[in-house]
C-alpha cells in the first residue's frame, strides 16, 4: 500500500521539484525547445477548444447533423488525447530546468503580452509565440 499512498499524496500535494542551477549549454537549449513545445501544445489545445465550441454551436443551431457532429468530436477527442497529456507532463520538466511556474500559467491562460517579455529574458524570440 506504500506505493498507492505515495501516489495519492503525489496527486493532491504541491510537487517538490528540485530546480537545477547552472544549466549547461545543452540543457539551456533543451529547456528552450521544451518551452517552445509547451507553447505549441497550449496553442494547439486552444485551437481545438475553439473548433469544438464552434462545432457544438453549429450543431445546436441545426447547421450540422448528429453524424457529422459525432465525427468531428471523435477527431477532437483523439487530438485532445494526444496534446493535453503531453503538455501536462512537460510542466514539471520545465520547472526543473528553471522555468517559473508563473510563466507556464501565463502561457496556459494565453496572456501573450506578458509571455513575450519573459521569452526575451530567456533568449527566445517572442515572435515565435505568434508563429506557432
Amino acid at each position: 500500500m506504500g506505493l498507492l499512498r505515495s501516489l495519492f499524496r503525489g496527486l493532491f500535494q504541491e510537487s517538490r521539484i528540485k530546480i537545477k542551477m547552472n544549466l549547461t549549454r545543452e540543457e539551456l537549449e533543451m529547456r528552450n525547445s521544451a518551452l517552445i513545445e509547451y507553447i505549441r501544445l497550449n496553442k494547439a489545445t486552444e485551437r481545438l477548444r475553439c473548433m469544438a465550441n464552434d462545432c457544438t454551436m453549429l450543431y445546436k443551431q441545426g447547421f450540422i447533423d448528429n453524424a457529422f457532429f459525432n465525427t468531428v468530436m471523435v477527431e477532437t477527442m483523439k487530438r485532445a488525447q494526444q496534446l493535453i497529456p503531453k503538455s501536462g507532463a512537460l510542466k514539471s520538466k520545465l520547472v526543473q530546468l528553471g522555468i517559473p511556474v508563473d510563466l507556464l500559467e501565463m502561457i496556459n491562460k494565453g496572456l501573450y503580452d506578458n509571455v513575450s517579455k519573459h521569452l526575451v529574458k530567456l533568449g527566445i524570440p517572442p515572435s515565435i509565440f505568434n508563429s506557432l
Binding site: G10, L11, F12, Q13, E14, S15, I17, N42, T45, R49, I84, P85, S87, G88, A89, K91, S92, V95, V101, L104, E105, N108
Partner: peptide, 8 residues
C-alpha cells in the same frame, strides 16, 4: 490538483 500535475 496542483497546476503542475494536471493538463487542460
Amino acid at each position: 490538483v496542483p497546476f503542475l500535475k494536471k493538463g487542460e
